[in-house]
């Protein structure tokens, strides 16, 4: 494998991995607080639609991304209302959100199909860093600002989660809400905020698709990315830093599935990312407790004060 291969693979992995990274970071926070949101696909597609429609109307991609974030929050808060306040089944509520989001975005987006975005979010070249041989073209050209923001965000979210009081609050709500409650942490508020953050990030991930990655709106353009996000969350052991590797690793796999077509059967390559997700989880299961990916203790369980 010559350097050209490496450069293009890493570069494409970064570009394709962005929506996965943003989505995964959001889902990590939601799940750390004890709420599974299978509606990532729905929030992403709504974000993609809103991002395009607003960016097209107002003529600036920044507004589009803001709108995508806002729509993501609204969808996520709805999920939080159902699962935290009404204590509905989280899996079913998430599935419903995906179903509803795909339908609604498709419905609203009918008039916007097949038009290029007037002003897409451009790619940037990082000054001077781009000049570095190999690393420059690999990491510092052809990326949008969201690639770097995403990585920065992952670091920040890691620090918050593991090095601050807020992080302790979030994790304790996810592990044992009753204990957290007795310590005076408002379980409901923490869960609402974490799920809303999840929606915000998923919305931006979707907005990236329609505003930067492929600046136009097409129905179903998230094409199953939301599900990959769900897998990546576990893949990353609910750790924002590991999400970086996970997301870009999946990005690389997706790129390679087209790159390697000349050598390996295309159908085999297309199922590779999915098989890989299972394989990695299984292998980490082999490795004993140290490698085991342990989910937050009360993931998926609604909290009712005074029970358990």
């Amino acid at each position: 494998m010559d350097l050209g291969w490496l450069v293009s693979t890493v570069s494409r992995a970064l570009a394709f991995g962005v929506p996965l990274l943003w989505g995964t970071l959001g889902e990590i926070y939601a799940e750390r607080s004890g709420v599974v949101n299978l509606g990532v696909e729905g929030m992403m597609i709504l974000g993609a639609y809103a991002g395009f429609a607003v960016a097209q109307t107002l003529g600036h991609p920044g507004w589009g991304l803001l709108a995508a974030a806002a729509v993501g929050v609204v969808a996520a808060v709805w999920h939080a209302f159902l699962t935290v306040t009404l204590r509905a089944n989280q899996y079913v509520s998430g599935l419903a959100l995906t179903l509803f989001g795909l339908g609604l975005a498709g419905l609203l987006g009918r008039g916007w199909e097949g038009r290029p975005l007037r002003v897409p979010l451009g790619t940037i070249t990082v000054p001077s860093l781009a000049e570095i041989p190999v690393l420059g073209p690999m990491l510092f050209v052809d990326q949008t600002i969201l690639t770097y923001l995403g990585i920065l965000l992952a670091v920040v979210l890691w620090v918050v989660l593991f090095r601050t009081r807020w992080g302790i609050a979030i994790r304790s709500v996810g592990e044992s809400p009753a204990t957290a409650d007795s310590l005076g942490i408002n379980v409901t508020v923490v869960r609402y905020l974490c799920v809303a953050l999840g929606g915000l990030l998923a919305g931006v991930g979707g907005g990236y698709l329609s505003v930067a990655y492929r600046p136009s709106w097409t129905e179903g353009m998230t094409a199953g990315m939301g599900w990959i996000v769900i897998a990546l969350t576990i893949f990353a052991s609910w750790d924002p830093l590991q999400a970086i590797w996970g997301a870009f690793f999946f990005g690389a796999l997706y790129h390679l599935s087209f790159r390697l077509q000349a050598y390996v059967s295309p159908e085999l390559l297309k199922l590779m990312p999915y098989a890989f997700a299972i394989l990695v989880l299984a292998v980490s299961g082999f490795g004993g407790a140290r490698w085991r990916r342990r989910a937050p203790g009360s993931l998926g369980v609604p909290y009712v004060r005074g029970e358990r």
Binding site: L82, V92, L95, A96, F100, G103, L104, L107
Partner: peptide
């Protein structure tokens, strides 16, 4: 696409009624 919206609405209302 209205079918998806429709199914989503039914689901939402069913799970909200759970409580």
């Amino acid at each position: 696409q209205i079918t998806g919206v429709f199914n989503g609405l039914i689901l939402f209302s069913l799970i909200s009624s759970d409580l």
